[in-house]
Design a protein around this nucleic acid. Sequence first.
DNA 1: TCATAATTGTGAAGATTATAACAAACTTTC
DNA 2: GAAAGTTTGTTATAATCTTCACAATTATGA
Lengths: 212, 212
Amino acid sequence: MREKKRIPLISVERLIIYRRCLLKLKQAAIAKISSNSLGKLTNITAVNIRKDLSYIGETGKPGFGYQVKELIVHIEKFMGMDHIHKVVLIGMGNIGASLLNYQNWQIRGFEIVGAFDKDKRKVNRVINGVKIQNCRRLQNFLKKHSISIAILAIPAGETQKKVNELAEFGVKGFYIISPIIVNVPKDCFVEYLDMISPLEFLMFRIKKNILK
Amino acid sequence: MREKKRIPLISVERLIIYRRCLLKLKQAAIAKISSNSLGKLTNITAVNIRKDLSYIGETGKPGFGYQVKELIVHIEKFMGMDHIHKVVLIGMGNIGASLLNYQNWQIRGFEIVGAFDKDKRKVNRVINGVKIQNCRRLQNFLKKHSISIAILAIPAGETQKKVNELAEFGVKGFYIISPIIVNVPKDCFVEYLDMISPLEFLMFRIKKNILK
DNA sequence: TCATAATTGTGAAGATTATAACAAACTTTC
DNA sequence: GAAAGTTTGTTATAATCTTCACAATTATGA
Ligand SMILES: NC(=O)c1ccc[n+]([C@@H]2O[C@H](COP(=O)([O-])OP(=O)(O)OC[C@H]3O[C@@H](n4cnc5c(N)ncnc54)[C@H](O)[C@@H]3O)[C@@H](O)[C@H]2O)c1
Ligand SMILES: NC(=O)c1ccc[n+]([C@@H]2O[C@H](COP(=O)([O-])OP(=O)(O)OC[C@H]3O[C@@H](n4cnc5c(N)ncnc54)[C@H](O)[C@@H]3O)[C@@H](O)[C@H]2O)c1
Protein backbone atom coordinates (compact mmCIF):
# COMPACT_ATOMS: atom_id res chain seq x y z
CA MET A 1 0.00 0.00 0.00
CA ARG A 2 1.14 3.50 -0.77
CA GLU A 3 2.25 5.48 2.24
CA LYS A 4 -0.47 7.75 3.56
CA LYS A 5 0.30 11.38 2.86
CA ARG A 6 0.82 13.74 5.75
CA ILE A 7 -2.11 16.02 6.53
CA PRO A 8 -1.86 19.38 4.76
CA LEU A 9 -1.51 22.29 7.16
CA ILE A 10 -4.56 23.86 5.61
CA SER A 11 -6.55 20.84 6.74
CA VAL A 12 -5.23 21.35 10.25
CA GLU A 13 -6.52 24.90 10.17
CA ARG A 14 -9.92 23.54 9.28
CA LEU A 15 -9.75 20.92 12.01
CA ILE A 16 -9.53 23.84 14.41
CA ILE A 17 -12.71 25.26 12.92
CA TYR A 18 -14.48 21.89 13.09
CA ARG A 19 -13.54 21.49 16.73
CA ARG A 20 -14.73 24.98 17.58
CA CYS A 21 -18.03 24.24 15.91
CA LEU A 22 -18.37 20.78 17.43
CA LEU A 23 -17.84 22.18 20.91
CA LYS A 24 -20.83 24.44 20.35
CA LEU A 25 -22.90 21.47 19.19
CA LYS A 26 -21.87 19.50 22.23
CA GLN A 27 -22.88 22.39 24.45
CA ALA A 28 -26.25 22.40 22.71
CA ALA A 29 -26.55 18.68 23.51
CA ILE A 30 -26.45 17.68 19.86
CA ALA A 31 -25.03 14.17 19.74
CA LYS A 32 -24.47 13.48 16.04
CA ILE A 33 -23.74 15.35 12.86
CA SER A 34 -23.11 14.54 9.22
CA SER A 35 -20.36 16.03 7.11
CA ASN A 36 -23.12 17.73 5.20
CA SER A 37 -24.58 19.53 8.20
CA LEU A 38 -21.16 20.41 9.52
CA GLY A 39 -20.43 21.86 6.10
CA LYS A 40 -23.48 24.11 6.35
CA LEU A 41 -22.30 25.37 9.73
CA THR A 42 -18.75 26.05 8.63
CA ASN A 43 -19.14 26.98 4.98
CA ILE A 44 -16.81 24.18 4.01
CA THR A 45 -17.85 21.52 1.52
CA ALA A 46 -18.86 18.16 2.96
CA VAL A 47 -16.36 16.24 0.90
CA ASN A 48 -13.58 18.56 1.97
CA ILE A 49 -14.51 17.90 5.57
CA ARG A 50 -14.51 14.15 5.06
CA LYS A 51 -11.18 14.33 3.29
CA ASP A 52 -9.71 16.37 6.13
CA LEU A 53 -11.04 13.94 8.68
CA SER A 54 -9.72 11.00 6.71
CA TYR A 55 -6.20 12.23 7.47
CA ILE A 56 -6.76 11.71 11.16
CA GLY A 57 -8.24 8.24 10.77
CA GLU A 58 -11.73 6.87 10.32
CA THR A 59 -14.15 8.52 12.64
CA GLY A 60 -17.59 8.39 11.09
CA LYS A 61 -20.18 5.78 10.35
CA PRO A 62 -21.69 5.50 6.86
CA GLY A 63 -25.38 6.21 6.83
CA PHE A 64 -25.09 7.87 10.19
CA GLY A 65 -22.45 10.55 10.42
CA TYR A 66 -20.19 11.47 13.30
CA GLN A 67 -20.65 11.27 17.05
CA VAL A 68 -20.01 14.84 18.16
CA LYS A 69 -18.23 13.99 21.41
CA GLU A 70 -16.15 11.26 19.81
CA LEU A 71 -15.07 13.49 16.98
CA ILE A 72 -13.99 16.25 19.35
CA VAL A 73 -11.85 13.80 21.29
CA HIS A 74 -10.45 12.40 18.08
CA ILE A 75 -9.45 15.83 16.76
CA GLU A 76 -7.99 16.86 20.10
CA LYS A 77 -5.98 13.68 20.32
CA PHE A 78 -4.65 14.15 16.82
CA MET A 79 -3.75 17.76 17.45
CA GLY A 80 -2.01 17.01 20.70
CA MET A 81 -4.54 18.90 22.78
CA ASP A 82 -4.20 16.33 25.51
CA HIS A 83 -3.75 18.89 28.24
CA ILE A 84 -3.98 22.61 28.93
CA HIS A 85 -0.86 24.30 27.63
CA LYS A 86 0.68 26.99 29.73
CA VAL A 87 1.76 30.20 28.05
CA VAL A 88 3.05 33.59 29.07
CA LEU A 89 1.83 36.91 27.80
CA ILE A 90 4.26 39.76 27.14
CA GLY A 91 2.90 43.28 26.90
CA MET A 92 -0.10 44.28 28.91
CA GLY A 93 -1.46 47.13 26.82
CA ASN A 94 -4.82 47.11 25.05
CA ILE A 95 -4.50 43.71 23.42
CA GLY A 96 -2.54 42.08 26.22
CA ALA A 97 -5.16 43.09 28.77
CA SER A 98 -7.94 41.90 26.45
CA LEU A 99 -6.31 38.53 26.10
CA LEU A 100 -5.87 38.26 29.83
CA ASN A 101 -9.55 39.05 30.25
CA TYR A 102 -10.59 36.43 27.73
CA GLN A 103 -12.79 33.87 29.44
CA ASN A 104 -12.42 30.84 27.19
CA TRP A 105 -8.74 30.01 27.32
CA GLN A 106 -9.33 26.66 28.97
CA ILE A 107 -11.74 25.43 26.36
CA ARG A 108 -9.31 26.44 23.66
CA GLY A 109 -6.60 24.45 25.42
CA PHE A 110 -4.49 27.14 27.04
CA GLU A 111 -3.82 28.89 30.29
CA ILE A 112 -2.04 32.18 30.73
CA VAL A 113 0.12 31.59 33.76
CA GLY A 114 2.25 34.70 33.59
CA ALA A 115 1.81 38.26 32.37
CA PHE A 116 4.71 40.65 31.88
CA ASP A 117 5.25 44.28 31.02
CA LYS A 118 8.22 46.58 31.13
CA ASP A 119 6.18 49.52 32.28
CA LYS A 120 6.58 49.85 36.05
CA ARG A 121 3.19 51.48 36.41
CA LYS A 122 1.55 48.31 35.16
CA VAL A 123 3.64 45.88 37.17
CA ASN A 124 1.83 44.38 40.19
CA ARG A 125 -1.58 45.27 38.86
CA VAL A 126 -3.86 42.26 38.79
CA ILE A 127 -6.01 41.45 35.77
CA ASN A 128 -8.43 38.56 35.87
CA GLY A 129 -6.54 37.03 38.77
CA VAL A 130 -3.10 37.25 37.17
CA LYS A 131 -0.54 39.65 38.57
CA ILE A 132 1.51 41.54 36.02
CA GLN A 133 5.22 41.04 36.56
CA ASN A 134 8.31 42.92 35.66
CA CYS A 135 10.04 41.58 32.58
CA ARG A 136 13.20 40.98 34.58
CA ARG A 137 11.47 38.02 36.16
CA LEU A 138 10.84 36.37 32.82
CA GLN A 139 13.87 34.13 32.67
CA ASN A 140 13.32 32.62 36.09
CA PHE A 141 9.60 32.30 35.58
CA LEU A 142 9.96 30.49 32.27
CA LYS A 143 12.44 28.09 33.77
CA LYS A 144 10.48 27.45 36.93
CA HIS A 145 7.26 26.70 35.09
CA SER A 146 9.00 25.22 32.04
CA ILE A 147 7.07 27.38 29.63
CA SER A 148 8.00 27.28 25.99
CA ILE A 149 5.29 29.42 24.43
CA ALA A 150 4.96 33.20 24.56
CA ILE A 151 2.34 35.56 23.23
CA LEU A 152 3.81 38.93 22.34
CA ALA A 153 1.45 41.90 22.35
CA ILE A 154 3.99 44.70 22.36
CA PRO A 155 4.72 47.45 19.83
CA ALA A 156 6.01 46.13 16.51
CA GLY A 157 9.33 47.89 16.97
CA GLU A 158 10.00 46.08 20.23
CA THR A 159 9.10 42.65 19.00
CA GLN A 160 12.24 41.32 17.31
CA LYS A 161 14.38 42.30 20.29
CA LYS A 162 12.02 40.56 22.66
CA VAL A 163 11.86 37.45 20.50
CA ASN A 164 15.65 37.19 20.56
CA GLU A 165 15.66 37.52 24.32
CA LEU A 166 12.92 34.96 24.84
CA ALA A 167 14.59 32.52 22.47
CA GLU A 168 17.67 32.72 24.68
CA PHE A 169 15.46 31.91 27.63
CA GLY A 170 14.34 28.75 25.87
CA VAL A 171 11.02 29.84 24.38
CA LYS A 172 10.26 27.74 21.30
CA GLY A 173 6.92 29.08 20.16
CA PHE A 174 6.04 32.72 19.49
CA TYR A 175 2.61 34.14 18.85
CA ILE A 176 3.18 37.63 17.52
CA ILE A 177 0.31 40.12 17.74
CA SER A 178 1.85 42.85 15.64
CA PRO A 179 1.96 43.70 11.98
CA ILE A 180 5.56 42.58 11.62
CA ILE A 181 7.53 39.54 10.55
CA VAL A 182 10.32 38.36 12.82
CA ASN A 183 13.29 36.05 12.52
CA VAL A 184 13.54 33.17 14.90
CA PRO A 185 16.23 30.53 15.51
CA LYS A 186 15.94 27.45 13.34
CA ASP A 187 14.34 25.30 16.02
CA CYS A 188 11.66 27.85 16.88
CA PHE A 189 8.11 28.28 15.64
CA VAL A 190 6.18 31.44 15.02
CA GLU A 191 2.63 32.43 14.15
CA TYR A 192 1.24 35.87 13.51
CA LEU A 193 -1.93 37.79 14.06
CA ASP A 194 -2.44 41.00 12.16
CA MET A 195 -5.81 42.22 13.27
CA ILE A 196 -6.19 44.70 10.44
CA SER A 197 -5.27 42.78 7.30
CA PRO A 198 -8.49 40.78 7.19
CA LEU A 199 -10.29 44.11 7.02
CA GLU A 200 -8.10 45.26 4.13
CA PHE A 201 -8.81 41.96 2.45
CA LEU A 202 -12.54 42.38 3.05
CA MET A 203 -12.39 45.83 1.51
CA PHE A 204 -10.70 44.44 -1.57
CA ARG A 205 -13.31 41.72 -1.96
CA ILE A 206 -16.12 44.24 -1.65
CA LYS A 207 -14.56 46.54 -4.24
CA LYS A 208 -14.00 43.74 -6.72
CA ASN A 209 -17.22 42.01 -5.79
CA ILE A 210 -15.52 38.72 -4.97
CA LEU A 211 -17.92 36.64 -2.92
CA LYS A 212 -15.40 33.80 -2.51
CA MET B 1 -3.03 36.34 -26.60
CA ARG B 2 -4.43 34.20 -23.83
CA GLU B 3 -6.57 36.07 -21.36
CA LYS B 4 -4.66 37.06 -18.24
CA LYS B 5 -5.83 35.10 -15.25
CA ARG B 6 -7.41 36.89 -12.32
CA ILE B 7 -5.19 37.32 -9.29
CA PRO B 8 -5.59 34.53 -6.74
CA LEU B 9 -6.96 35.75 -3.43
CA ILE B 10 -3.95 34.29 -1.71
CA SER B 11 -1.80 36.65 -3.72
CA VAL B 12 -3.95 39.53 -2.53
CA GLU B 13 -3.29 38.48 1.05
CA ARG B 14 0.39 38.67 0.32
CA LEU B 15 0.04 42.05 -1.36
CA ILE B 16 -1.21 43.27 2.00
CA ILE B 17 1.94 41.95 3.62
CA TYR B 18 4.15 43.51 0.97
CA ARG B 19 2.49 46.86 1.44
CA ARG B 20 2.84 46.69 5.22
CA CYS B 21 6.51 45.94 4.80
CA LEU B 22 7.06 48.56 2.12
CA LEU B 23 5.51 51.24 4.31
CA LYS B 24 8.13 50.46 6.94
CA LEU B 25 10.87 50.71 4.33
CA LYS B 26 9.51 54.02 3.15
CA GLN B 27 9.47 55.28 6.71
CA ALA B 28 13.10 54.23 7.00
CA ALA B 29 13.83 56.28 3.86
CA ILE B 30 14.74 53.21 1.83
CA ALA B 31 14.00 54.03 -1.79
CA LYS B 32 14.45 50.73 -3.63
CA ILE B 33 14.16 47.05 -3.00
CA SER B 34 14.54 43.84 -4.97
CA SER B 35 12.14 40.92 -4.84
CA ASN B 36 14.95 39.04 -3.20
CA SER B 37 15.35 41.45 -0.30
CA LEU B 38 11.61 41.81 0.11
CA GLY B 39 11.49 38.05 0.28
CA LYS B 40 13.97 38.03 3.14
CA LEU B 41 11.84 40.53 5.03
CA THR B 42 8.58 38.70 4.51
CA ASN B 43 9.66 35.06 4.39
CA ILE B 44 8.11 34.71 0.98
CA THR B 45 10.15 33.48 -1.98
CA ALA B 46 11.33 36.10 -4.42
CA VAL B 47 9.76 34.40 -7.39
CA ASN B 48 6.45 34.15 -5.57
CA ILE B 49 6.59 37.87 -4.93
CA ARG B 50 7.36 38.64 -8.57
CA LYS B 51 4.54 36.39 -9.65
CA ASP B 52 2.13 38.10 -7.29
CA LEU B 53 3.22 41.51 -8.50
CA SER B 54 2.90 40.46 -12.11
CA TYR B 55 -0.83 40.16 -11.58
CA ILE B 56 -1.10 43.86 -10.85
CA GLY B 57 0.98 44.94 -13.84
CA GLU B 58 4.65 45.55 -14.43
CA THR B 59 6.17 47.54 -11.68
CA GLY B 60 9.85 46.72 -11.43
CA LYS B 61 12.95 47.34 -13.46
CA PRO B 62 15.24 44.44 -14.38
CA GLY B 63 18.68 44.75 -12.87
CA PHE B 64 17.33 47.28 -10.39
CA GLY B 65 14.28 46.17 -8.47
CA TYR B 66 11.30 48.17 -7.31
CA GLN B 67 10.90 51.77 -6.26
CA VAL B 68 9.44 51.51 -2.79
CA LYS B 69 7.12 54.50 -3.04
CA GLU B 70 5.96 53.59 -6.53
CA LEU B 71 5.21 50.04 -5.54
CA ILE B 72 3.17 51.13 -2.55
CA VAL B 73 1.08 53.39 -4.74
CA HIS B 74 0.71 50.65 -7.31
CA ILE B 75 -0.50 48.12 -4.74
CA GLU B 76 -2.86 50.62 -3.14
CA LYS B 77 -4.30 51.56 -6.51
CA PHE B 78 -4.83 47.93 -7.41
CA MET B 79 -6.44 47.16 -4.07
CA GLY B 80 -8.73 50.13 -4.22
CA MET B 81 -7.09 51.84 -1.26
CA ASP B 82 -7.60 55.18 -2.91
CA HIS B 83 -9.09 56.79 0.15
CA ILE B 84 -9.68 56.22 3.84
CA HIS B 85 -12.64 53.92 4.31
CA LYS B 86 -15.06 54.72 7.09
CA VAL B 87 -16.23 51.90 9.30
CA VAL B 88 -18.27 51.47 12.45
CA LEU B 89 -17.36 49.38 15.43
CA ILE B 90 -20.00 47.42 17.31
CA GLY B 91 -19.23 46.22 20.82
CA MET B 92 -17.00 48.27 23.04
CA GLY B 93 -15.65 45.61 25.37
CA ASN B 94 -12.03 44.53 25.61
CA ILE B 95 -11.41 44.11 21.90
CA GLY B 96 -13.66 46.93 20.78
CA ALA B 97 -11.91 49.38 23.07
CA SER B 98 -8.51 48.10 21.92
CA LEU B 99 -9.43 48.64 18.32
CA LEU B 100 -10.68 52.12 19.06
CA ASN B 101 -7.37 52.84 20.78
CA TYR B 102 -5.37 51.55 17.83
CA GLN B 103 -3.21 54.36 16.50
CA ASN B 104 -2.54 53.24 12.94
CA TRP B 105 -5.97 53.03 11.36
CA GLN B 106 -5.22 55.77 8.88
CA ILE B 107 -2.12 54.17 7.51
CA ARG B 108 -4.00 50.92 7.11
CA GLY B 109 -6.64 52.76 5.15
CA PHE B 110 -9.50 53.03 7.61
CA GLU B 111 -11.19 55.34 10.05
CA ILE B 112 -13.55 54.36 12.82
CA VAL B 113 -16.23 57.00 12.66
CA GLY B 114 -18.73 55.43 15.01
CA ALA B 115 -18.63 53.19 18.04
CA PHE B 116 -21.68 51.45 19.44
CA ASP B 117 -22.60 49.35 22.43
CA LYS B 118 -25.86 48.16 23.90
CA ASP B 119 -24.63 48.58 27.46
CA LYS B 120 -25.96 51.89 28.79
CA ARG B 121 -23.04 52.22 31.17
CA LYS B 122 -20.68 52.42 28.22
CA VAL B 123 -22.74 54.75 26.11
CA ASN B 124 -21.48 58.35 26.02
CA ARG B 125 -18.04 57.38 27.25
CA VAL B 126 -15.33 58.72 24.96
CA ILE B 127 -12.44 56.55 23.82
CA ASN B 128 -9.67 58.04 21.74
CA GLY B 129 -11.90 60.90 20.74
CA VAL B 130 -14.86 58.79 19.68
CA LYS B 131 -18.04 58.86 21.72
CA ILE B 132 -19.73 55.52 22.24
CA GLN B 133 -23.32 55.57 21.08
CA ASN B 134 -26.39 53.59 21.84
CA CYS B 135 -27.13 50.89 19.29
CA ARG B 136 -30.50 52.43 18.60
CA ARG B 137 -28.72 55.16 16.73
CA LEU B 138 -27.08 52.72 14.36
CA GLN B 139 -29.57 52.85 11.53
CA ASN B 140 -29.58 56.62 11.26
CA PHE B 141 -25.86 56.87 11.67
CA LEU B 142 -25.14 54.35 8.93
CA LYS B 143 -27.46 56.13 6.57
CA LYS B 144 -26.22 59.59 7.37
CA HIS B 145 -22.57 58.68 6.87
CA SER B 146 -23.28 56.07 4.18
CA ILE B 147 -21.24 53.43 5.93
CA SER B 148 -21.26 49.93 4.55
CA ILE B 149 -18.65 48.20 6.70
CA ALA B 150 -18.99 47.11 10.32
CA ILE B 151 -16.56 45.54 12.72
CA LEU B 152 -18.33 43.32 15.23
CA ALA B 153 -16.57 42.73 18.53
CA ILE B 154 -19.46 41.38 20.55
CA PRO B 155 -20.03 38.00 22.18
CA ALA B 156 -20.27 35.14 19.69
CA GLY B 157 -23.85 34.43 20.70
CA GLU B 158 -24.94 37.94 19.81
CA THR B 159 -23.23 38.09 16.47
CA GLN B 160 -25.64 36.46 14.01
CA LYS B 161 -28.54 38.53 15.32
CA LYS B 162 -26.53 41.73 14.95
CA VAL B 163 -25.38 40.78 11.46
CA ASN B 164 -28.98 40.30 10.37
CA GLU B 165 -29.92 43.67 11.79
CA LEU B 166 -26.98 45.46 10.19
CA ALA B 167 -27.63 43.82 6.85
CA GLU B 168 -31.12 45.29 6.96
CA PHE B 169 -29.57 48.67 7.59
CA GLY B 170 -27.54 48.28 4.41
CA VAL B 171 -24.20 47.08 5.74
CA LYS B 172 -22.42 45.06 3.07
CA GLY B 173 -19.15 44.08 4.75
CA PHE B 174 -18.78 42.39 8.12
CA TYR B 175 -15.58 41.90 10.04
CA ILE B 176 -16.39 39.38 12.75
CA ILE B 177 -14.10 39.24 15.78
CA SER B 178 -15.55 36.12 17.34
CA PRO B 179 -14.95 32.41 17.02
CA ILE B 180 -18.12 31.86 15.06
CA ILE B 181 -19.27 31.56 11.46
CA VAL B 182 -22.27 33.60 10.38
CA ASN B 183 -24.66 33.61 7.47
CA VAL B 184 -24.98 36.76 5.44
CA PRO B 185 -27.26 37.76 2.57
CA LYS B 186 -25.96 36.84 -0.87
CA ASP B 187 -24.70 40.30 -1.71
CA CYS B 188 -22.75 40.69 1.55
CA PHE B 189 -19.14 39.99 2.40
CA VAL B 190 -17.65 38.66 5.59
CA GLU B 191 -14.22 38.11 7.06
CA TYR B 192 -13.32 36.58 10.39
CA LEU B 193 -10.72 36.98 13.07
CA ASP B 194 -10.34 34.22 15.59
CA MET B 195 -7.55 35.40 17.83
CA ILE B 196 -6.94 32.01 19.38
CA SER B 197 -6.79 29.60 16.47
CA PRO B 198 -3.33 30.68 15.33
CA LEU B 199 -2.13 29.71 18.78
CA GLU B 200 -3.74 26.29 18.48
CA PHE B 201 -2.12 25.95 15.10
CA LEU B 202 1.25 26.99 16.53
CA MET B 203 0.89 24.37 19.23
CA PHE B 204 0.22 21.71 16.64
CA ARG B 205 3.27 22.69 14.61
CA ILE B 206 5.46 22.59 17.69
CA LYS B 207 4.19 19.16 18.70
CA LYS B 208 4.67 17.70 15.24
CA ASN B 209 7.84 19.70 14.65
CA ILE B 210 6.57 21.29 11.45
CA LEU B 211 8.75 24.29 10.69
CA LYS B 212 6.72 25.20 7.56
C1' DT C 1 -35.85 -9.70 5.90
C1' DC C 2 -35.09 -7.10 2.08
C1' DA C 3 -35.29 -2.89 -0.52
C1' DT C 4 -34.31 1.90 -0.19
C1' DA C 5 -32.06 5.86 1.54
C1' DA C 6 -28.28 8.09 3.77
C1' DT C 7 -23.66 8.76 4.50
C1' DT C 8 -18.75 7.74 4.74
C1' DG C 9 -14.00 7.17 2.85
C1' DT C 10 -11.04 7.33 -1.03
C1' DG C 11 -8.76 6.85 -5.69
C1' DA C 12 -8.78 9.58 -9.76
C1' DA C 13 -9.47 13.81 -12.11
C1' DG C 14 -9.45 18.60 -12.15
C1' DA C 15 -8.09 23.10 -10.42
C1' DT C 16 -5.12 25.96 -8.18
C1' DT C 17 -0.73 27.49 -6.46
C1' DA C 18 4.29 27.38 -6.15
C1' DT C 19 8.72 26.65 -8.15
C1' DA C 20 12.09 26.22 -11.74
C1' DA C 21 14.24 27.89 -15.70
C1' DC C 22 15.51 31.36 -18.59
C1' DA C 23 15.28 35.23 -21.99
C1' DA C 24 15.18 40.10 -21.80
C1' DA C 25 16.25 44.40 -19.70
C1' DC C 26 18.83 47.12 -16.92
C1' DT C 27 23.16 48.47 -13.98
C1' DT C 28 27.85 48.46 -12.88
C1' DT C 29 32.59 47.99 -13.77
C1' DC C 30 36.52 48.24 -16.21
C1' DG D 1 31.17 51.13 -24.59
C1' DA D 2 31.68 46.24 -24.11
C1' DA D 3 31.53 42.58 -20.69
C1' DA D 4 29.93 40.89 -16.44
C1' DG D 5 26.61 40.90 -13.05
C1' DT D 6 21.60 41.77 -11.41
C1' DT D 7 17.04 41.41 -11.50
C1' DT D 8 12.58 41.24 -13.64
C1' DG D 9 8.59 38.93 -15.92
C1' DT D 10 6.86 34.81 -17.85
C1' DT D 11 6.37 30.24 -19.67
C1' DA D 12 6.74 25.56 -18.45
C1' DT D 13 6.78 22.21 -14.85
C1' DA D 14 5.93 20.41 -10.37
C1' DA D 15 3.45 20.24 -6.18
C1' DT D 16 -0.54 20.87 -3.60
C1' DC D 17 -5.33 21.11 -2.79
C1' DT D 18 -10.24 20.45 -4.03
C1' DT D 19 -13.85 18.18 -6.18
C1' DC D 20 -15.86 14.27 -8.50
C1' DA D 21 -17.51 9.77 -8.68
C1' DC D 22 -18.62 5.77 -6.57
C1' DA D 23 -18.09 1.45 -3.86
C1' DA D 24 -18.84 0.16 0.77
C1' DT D 25 -21.32 0.47 4.95
C1' DT D 26 -24.95 1.48 7.99
C1' DA D 27 -29.74 2.98 9.06
C1' DT D 28 -34.68 2.92 8.06
C1' DG D 29 -39.00 1.20 7.01
C1' DA D 30 -42.19 -1.62 4.55
N1 LIG E 1 -4.89 47.83 19.78
C1 LIG E 1 -5.31 47.29 18.67
O1 LIG E 1 -6.50 47.18 18.40
C2 LIG E 1 -4.33 46.78 17.67
C3 LIG E 1 -4.75 46.56 16.35
C4 LIG E 1 -3.85 46.06 15.43
C5 LIG E 1 -2.57 45.78 15.81
N2 LIG E 1 -2.18 46.02 17.07
C6 LIG E 1 -0.81 45.73 17.43
O2 LIG E 1 -0.76 44.96 18.60
C7 LIG E 1 0.37 45.32 19.37
C8 LIG E 1 -0.06 45.70 20.75
O3 LIG E 1 -1.03 46.69 20.65
P1 LIG E 1 -1.63 47.41 21.91
O4 LIG E 1 -2.69 48.30 21.44
O5 LIG E 1 -1.95 46.43 22.97
O6 LIG E 1 -0.38 48.30 22.35
P2 LIG E 1 -0.22 49.14 23.72
O7 LIG E 1 0.68 50.26 23.41
O8 LIG E 1 -1.54 49.39 24.31
O9 LIG E 1 0.54 48.12 24.67
C9 LIG E 1 1.85 47.75 24.52
C10 LIG E 1 2.32 47.28 25.88
O10 LIG E 1 3.58 46.66 25.73
C11 LIG E 1 4.42 47.12 26.76
N3 LIG E 1 5.78 46.99 26.25
C12 LIG E 1 6.40 47.73 25.33
N4 LIG E 1 7.61 47.27 25.11
C13 LIG E 1 7.77 46.20 25.90
C14 LIG E 1 8.83 45.30 26.11
N5 LIG E 1 9.98 45.40 25.45
N6 LIG E 1 8.64 44.31 27.00
C15 LIG E 1 7.49 44.20 27.67
N7 LIG E 1 6.46 45.01 27.50
C16 LIG E 1 6.61 46.02 26.63
C17 LIG E 1 4.01 48.54 27.02
O11 LIG E 1 4.39 48.94 28.32
C18 LIG E 1 2.50 48.42 26.87
O12 LIG E 1 1.91 48.08 28.09
C19 LIG E 1 1.04 46.45 18.63
O13 LIG E 1 2.07 45.95 17.84
C20 LIG E 1 -0.05 46.97 17.74
O14 LIG E 1 0.46 47.52 16.56
C21 LIG E 1 -3.03 46.51 18.01
N1 LIG F 1 -10.85 39.42 24.75
C1 LIG F 1 -10.11 38.62 23.99
O1 LIG F 1 -8.89 38.61 24.09
C2 LIG F 1 -10.73 37.71 23.01
C3 LIG F 1 -9.98 36.66 22.50
C4 LIG F 1 -10.55 35.81 21.56
C5 LIG F 1 -11.82 36.06 21.12
N2 LIG F 1 -12.53 37.07 21.62
C6 LIG F 1 -13.88 37.29 21.15
O2 LIG F 1 -14.08 38.63 20.77
C7 LIG F 1 -15.40 39.03 21.06
C8 LIG F 1 -15.36 40.25 21.92
O3 LIG F 1 -14.58 39.98 23.04
P1 LIG F 1 -14.41 40.99 24.22
O4 LIG F 1 -13.42 40.44 25.17
O5 LIG F 1 -14.19 42.38 23.69
O6 LIG F 1 -15.86 40.91 24.88
P2 LIG F 1 -16.47 41.86 26.02
O7 LIG F 1 -17.44 41.04 26.76
O8 LIG F 1 -15.38 42.55 26.74
O9 LIG F 1 -17.23 42.97 25.18
C9 LIG F 1 -18.40 42.74 24.49
C10 LIG F 1 -19.09 44.08 24.34
O10 LIG F 1 -20.14 43.94 23.43
C11 LIG F 1 -21.30 44.60 23.97
N3 LIG F 1 -22.44 43.95 23.37
C12 LIG F 1 -22.95 42.73 23.66
N4 LIG F 1 -24.00 42.47 22.87
C13 LIG F 1 -24.15 43.55 22.08
C14 LIG F 1 -25.07 43.88 21.06
N5 LIG F 1 -26.01 43.03 20.68
N6 LIG F 1 -24.94 45.07 20.45
C15 LIG F 1 -23.96 45.91 20.81
N7 LIG F 1 -23.08 45.66 21.77
C16 LIG F 1 -23.16 44.48 22.39
C17 LIG F 1 -21.20 44.42 25.45
O11 LIG F 1 -21.92 45.42 26.12
C18 LIG F 1 -19.70 44.57 25.66
O12 LIG F 1 -19.34 45.90 25.83
C19 LIG F 1 -16.05 37.84 21.74
O13 LIG F 1 -16.77 37.12 20.81
C20 LIG F 1 -14.89 37.01 22.22
O14 LIG F 1 -15.19 35.64 22.25
C21 LIG F 1 -12.01 37.92 22.56
